[in-house]
Computed example of a mutant assay.
Amino acid sequence: MPNYYWNPAAETIAKADLHRLQAAELREQAMYVLENASIWQDRCAVADVDRAELAAIESAEDFRETVPILDKRQIRDRLSAVDPYGGTLCVDPPTAGFRSSTSGTRRVATTYAVRHTSPDKPFREVP
């Protein structure tokens, strides 16, 4: 019988396992941006959210209730010649693998950058 899945482990994962995986990814990402992005450090300080609260995230609902909302206006307010990323960049600019910007159709364009987890393996596999 042919296998119609590109990634069977990811595409057939049980819902409970998927939710655990999503929570782990959200928790890891929240911790990473808190440690590396100045805008998130400021937002979490204002909302009185600390590392312990982020480390305790166990679900998408926990994430929504814990992590302060950040909108594009707040990023635009921080844009400057010194920081064209508005405090969102989590790596040194030379290590960013891809730089681009939004079109700015409604207002000022927002610059962003992406760095893969590693050059030879840009995406994670489902455990």
Results as ranks from 00 to 15, higher is better:
Trp40Gly: 00
Lys121Met: 10
Thr110Glu: 10
Tyr5Thr: 00
Ala16Tyr: 00
Leu26Trp: 03
His19Ala: 15
His19Met: 12
Pro119Val: 07
Val33Leu: 11
Pro122Ala: 09
Asp71His: 13
Gly86Cys: 06
Asp42Gly: 00
Leu79His: 08
Ala96Glu: 09
Asp92Lys: 12
Arg43Asp: 00
Pro93Ile: 04
Gly87Trp: 02
Tyr4Cys: 04
Arg107Asp: 15
Val126Gln: 03
Ala55Arg: 11
Arg107Gln: 12
Arg73Asn: 09
Ser118Val: 04
Met31Gln: 15
Trp6Phe: 10
Arg64Ser: 12
Gly104Leu: 09
Val46Ala: 12
Ala81Lys: 13
Ala37Glu: 14
Gly86Phe: 01
Pro93His: 02
Pro2Gln: 09
Pro2Glu: 11
Arg106Gln: 13
Met1Glu: 09
Ile75Tyr: 06
Leu21Ala: 14
Ala109Gly: 10
Pro68Ala: 09
Ala113Trp: 09
Trp6Met: 02
Phe123Met: 07
Ile69Met: 12
Tyr32Arg: 13
Gly104Cys: 10
Val82Ala: 14
Val67Ser: 01
Asp50Tyr: 02
Trp40Met: 14
Ala45Lys: 15
Trp40Cys: 07
Asp48His: 13
Asp62Ile: 05
Arg78His: 10
Ile39Cys: 06
Ser103Cys: 06
Arg76Asn: 01
Gly97Gln: 08
Tyr4Ile: 11
Arg99Leu: 11
Gly104Met: 07
Arg20Leu: 13
Pro94Phe: 04
Ser38Leu: 05
Pro84Phe: 06
Val114Ile: 15
Ser118Glu: 11
Ser38Asp: 12
Pro122Ser: 08
Lys72Cys: 01
Arg115Met: 10
Ala23Glu: 08
Gly104Thr: 08
Arg115Ala: 12
Thr66Cys: 11
Gln41Asn: 05
Tyr112Val: 06
Ser103Asp: 03
Arg99Glu: 15
Arg106Met: 14
Leu70Cys: 08
Pro127Phe: 05
Gly87Glu: 02
Asn7Lys: 12
Leu70Gly: 02
Thr12Lys: 11
Glu35Tyr: 00
Phe98Cys: 05
Asn36Lys: 15
Ile69Glu: 13
Ile57Tyr: 05
Pro68Thr: 07
Ile57Ser: 08
Val126Thr: 15
Ser100Leu: 06
Ala55Ile: 01
Asn36Val: 01
Ala37Asp: 01
Thr102Phe: 04
Gly87Gln: 05
Tyr85Ile: 04
Ala60Phe: 01
Ile13Val: 15
Asp42Thr: 14
Met1Pro: 04
Asp120Arg: 07
Ala56Cys: 03
Pro8Leu: 08
Gln22His: 12
Val114Arg: 11
Pro68Trp: 07
Asp62Phe: 05
Met1His: 08
Pro84Ala: 01
Val49Ser: 03
Asp48Asn: 14
Val67His: 00
Asp48Met: 07
Gln74Arg: 13
Glu28Thr: 11
Pro8Cys: 03
Asp92Glu: 15
